[in-house]
Structures are given as structure tokens and as C-alpha cells.
Lab assay of single mutants.
Amino acid sequence: VTTYKLVINGKTLKGETTTKAVDAETSEKAFKQYANDNGVDGVWTYDDATKTFTVTEMV
């Protein structure tokens, strides 16, 4: 189990959250659901070296 981080650069929501998951794909699903639940829709990137997802909304 690995800890993954999500950085949110939204128009109205900014911040970070973490989750523990067995792999990046599992954490990505959880993070995308979290973003969707909070009305964040944007461009996703992933940095495997830091286990960090970033979602950026276009303004």
C-alpha cells in the first residue's frame, strides 16, 4: 500500500489530499471521484516519482 497525493488547482477549490491505495490506477479512480464530487473538472497529470496527481481547471 502506497500513499498518493492529489493537488487541486481549481477555479473555486484549491488544496491537497492524500489516499492510500494498492496502485496508482486505484488512487486515480478515488481522486477523480473526489474531484467530481467537488465540482472540479480539469486536466490531469501524474508524477510517478512523487506519486502525485495534479488536476488543473482551465479558467
Rank of each mutant, 00 (worst) to 15 (best):
K20G: 06
W44A: 00
D41K: 13
S27C: 13
D23S: 09
S27W: 04
Y4W: 07
D37K: 10
E25R: 10
L6A: 02
G42L: 02
G15C: 15
L6R: 00
Y4E: 03
S27D: 01
E57W: 07
Y34K: 02
L13H: 12
T2K: 10
S27Y: 02
T56V: 07
V55Q: 00
K5R: 12
A30S: 09
N36G: 08
K51S: 04
G42Q: 01
K32N: 03
G39S: 06
D23R: 04
T26I: 06
T26E: 13
K14I: 09
V7G: 00
E16T: 13
F53K: 00
V40I: 15
T56H: 07
T3E: 14
V40G: 01
A24T: 09
A21Y: 05
T12K: 09
V55N: 02
T17C: 15
T52W: 00
G39F: 06
V7P: 00
E57K: 03
W44Y: 01
V43G: 04
V55R: 00
T54F: 10
F31S: 01
L6G: 02
A21Q: 08
S27N: 00
T18S: 11
V59R: 08
A35F: 03
T19L: 15
T52S: 04
A30T: 14
G10P: 01
K51P: 00
A35K: 02
K14S: 10
K11L: 15
T52D: 00
V22D: 06
A24K: 15
V55S: 00
F53Y: 07
A35I: 08
V22A: 11
A24E: 06
G39W: 04
G42T: 02
G10F: 11
D41E: 13
T18I: 09
V43C: 10
G15P: 04
K32I: 08
A30H: 14
V43N: 07
M58V: 13
F31W: 02
K20R: 12
T17A: 12
G39T: 03
A49C: 10
D47T: 04
D48Q: 09
K5N: 05
T54C: 06
D47C: 09
V59P: 13
T50S: 10
K51V: 03
V22Y: 12
I8T: 03
V22L: 11
T18L: 09
N9Y: 13
E28K: 11
V1P: 10
L6N: 01
E28S: 08
T54A: 04
K5L: 06
N36Y: 14
L13D: 05
K32Q: 08
A24V: 13
K11Q: 12
D47P: 00
T18H: 10
F31R: 00
V59Q: 13
K29R: 13
N36S: 14
A30Q: 12
I8S: 01
T52M: 04
D47Y: 03
T52A: 03
K11I: 15
K20S: 12
K20W: 12
K14L: 07
T3P: 04
V22T: 12
T52E: 03
K32G: 02
V43T: 10
A30F: 15
I8E: 02
V55A: 02
V55P: 00
T54K: 04
K20T: 14
V59M: 13
F53L: 02
F31V: 01
A21S: 08
D48W: 07
V7F: 07
F53Q: 00
E57R: 02
K11D: 07
K29L: 11
T50Q: 06
Y4N: 02
G42S: 01
L6V: 03
V7W: 04
D23A: 03
T3Q: 09
E57L: 07
Y34A: 02
V55E: 00
T12F: 14
N38S: 08
G39P: 01
T52K: 02
A21F: 05
D41N: 13
L13R: 05
Q33E: 10
K29W: 07
V40S: 02
A24I: 12
T54D: 02
L6T: 02
G39R: 05
Y46L: 01
T54Y: 12
V7S: 04
A24L: 11
Q33P: 00
L13Y: 14
L6Y: 02
D23Y: 03
A30V: 15
A21K: 03
